[in-house]
Design a protein around this nucleic acid. Structure first.
Length: 217
DNA sequence: TACCAGGTGGGAA
DNA sequence: TTCCCACATGGT
């Protein structure tokens, strides 16, 4: 099945996911940049549930400020305390400061992917998530769910860059579509294509899935 | 109780 | 390049 049809089916089944979630009212009130929330959230959610990342975001709002400026200026120890619910807080606090320093330093308007990747704490997924969801750059975001699904559905075993290239040559470059596609794959991974025991029963893609069809024989 | 969650960096093989 | 491990909280 063509990846474009996969997208259509997932959208049909799950509906729009409305990523990236941003508290626009907060930023309007505080005069802070809503895009900072994407960047900070992208680091906080690294190998953590979004719920825990949200708890850390809430603490930043309540006890500090949800902005890169605040992250850069607050003490490291205080920042660790604030982001604790997201887990890995010792390293995430360091990562946040690194990202804030980079993005607040004088540069061109758009950060370049290669430059972002040099920042400690910004790996491929975080870099692409920042570029796509904060800056609207049509770059495909790959995660564990995506790699697992590619292997199960197409029998395609590949790495991050391979998966990214696969989607970018199959689906026309379009930031809103890439945004939605990634969010839909995450939803698919949560609902059906789970790690240990996939729940194929009512999976919208099962008729074309290599793994599912291999079960039946 | 063990596993999992919108990963990354660093070191060994 | 490809594995392996540490990093940590909170939910099921």
């Amino acid at each position: 099945m063509d990846p474009r049809e996969v997208y259509a089916r997932l959208l049909e089944s799950f509906g729009r996911q409305n990523w990236w979630p941003i508290d626009r009212e907060y930023h309007l009130r505080r005069g802070t940049n809503p895009l900072d929330e994407v960047v900070i959230g992208a680091v906080l959610t690294q190998n953590a549930s979004w719920k825990n990342a949200e708890k850390a975001l809430e603490r930043l709002k309540e006890k500090g400020e949800l902005s890169l400026r605040f992250v850069k200026e607050v003490s490291l120890e205080r920042l660790k305390e604030l982001v604790r619910p997201a887990g890995f807080y010792n390293q995430k606090a360091v990562y946040l400061k690194e990202v804030a320093s980079f993005l607040l330093s004088p540069r061109g308007v758009l950060p370049r992917r290669e430059e972002l990747l040099k920042v400690k704490g910004v790996g491929r997924e975080t870099a692409d998530a920042i570029l796509l969801y904060a800056y609207g750059v049509p770059t495909f975001v790959v995660d564990k769910y995506t790699l697992r699904w590619l292997e199960r559905f197409y029998g395609l075993r590949t790495d991050y860059e391979g998966a990214k290239a696969f989607f970018e040559r199959s689906v026309a470059k379009n930031a809103p579509v890439y945004s939605e596609y990634h969010a839909l794959l995450v939803e698919l991974g949560k609902r059906h294509c789970r790690a240990r025991r996939p729940v194929c029963g009512d999976c919208p893609l099962r008729d074309a899935c290599l793994l599912y069809n291999s079960f039946k024989k």
